[in-house]
């Protein structure tokens, strides 16, 4: 079943068109990656999915229903969570408050504060600190955990491994694998193939605001040289 999809979406920033007739979808339980170089339109796609950008034309679908007109808070409550590119930790909330605020919408599921602390023990140690005192990697863990605690059906992750040390990246990859193994679908945005090749079942390649290629990770392996060209800087 397709959980979340865009259908032929055009998105503009003022007069500049950022997305051209973009269609894509995430199936239940699957890991999909969205790859493309800087400025390709990846973040714009995620923001359109979660309702922070409005499509000038086209539709947003949730389990086949048209949810184009819903606001971000309504989409969040449906079961879509967003881990933004710049993490956007609330600096004036403690680490624990950053987590607890995600539980307020009251969606039931397998993720709770204790389990998130088990997944990323460093967050438990830092629970009383202000959110903005964490290192980059810890902030990323916090942003992912905050998304998890809404107990979504699909988690949108915008470049979660960007700029982090290899050891932290490995830890995050393992966490994402575990999260998906428990049944959550992931839509993973990355600029390169390093992490997507480890995790994704299917992949979309985006360039200049349009989908240029899509297929399974095995297909991508076959066409790798051509795709590397599309995403290289």
């Amino acid at each position: 079943m397709t959980l979340l999809a865009l259908e032929s979406c055009d998105v503009f920033y003022d007069k500049a068109q950022a997305l051209h007739k973009v269609s894509l979808g995430v199936e239940a339980n699957e890991v999909v990656s969205l790859i493309g170089r800087n400025g390709a339109g990846k973040s714009t796609i995620l923001k359109t999915l979660i309702g922070l950008n409005r499509a000038a034309s086209g539709r947003r679908l949730w389990k086949g229903d048209d949810v184009t007109a819903l606001r971000a808070d309504q989409l969040g409550r449906l079961g879509i969570a967003y881990v933004p590119e710049d993490r956007r930790i609330f600096p004036n909330l403690s680490v624990e408050e950053n987590l607890r605020i995600a539980t307020l919408m009251g969606r039931q599921g397998g993720w709770n504060l204790a389990r998130v602390y088990d997944l990323f023990p460093v967050l438990r140690e830092r629970s009383a600190q202000p959110g903005d005192t964490l290192s980059g990697g810890e902030q990323q863990m916090l942003a992912i955990s905050r998304g998890l605690l809404t107990n979504p059906e699909v988690l949108l992750l915008d470049e979660p491994t960007e700029g982090l040390a290899p050891l932290i990246v490995d830890q995050l990859v393992e966490a994402m694998r575990l999260i998906n193994a428990e049944g959550m679908a992931l839509l993973l945005v990355e600029q390169n193939l390093r992490v997507p090749m480890k995790l994704a079942h299917r992949q979309y390649v985006i360039d200049h605001g349009a989908i240029r290629w899509s297929g399974t990770t095995a297909d991508l392996q076959v066409n790798r040289a051509e795709i590397e060209k599309l995403i290289s800087v």
């Binding site: 309702g51 606001r71 879509i80 956007r88 004036n92 307020l104």
Partner: peptide, 13 residues
């Protein structure tokens, strides 16, 4: 107050 859009994605009206 600090990030309205992020709060929205967490279901806050």
């Amino acid at each position: 107050s600090s990030d309205a859009d992020m709060a929205r994605t967490l279901g806050i009206d």
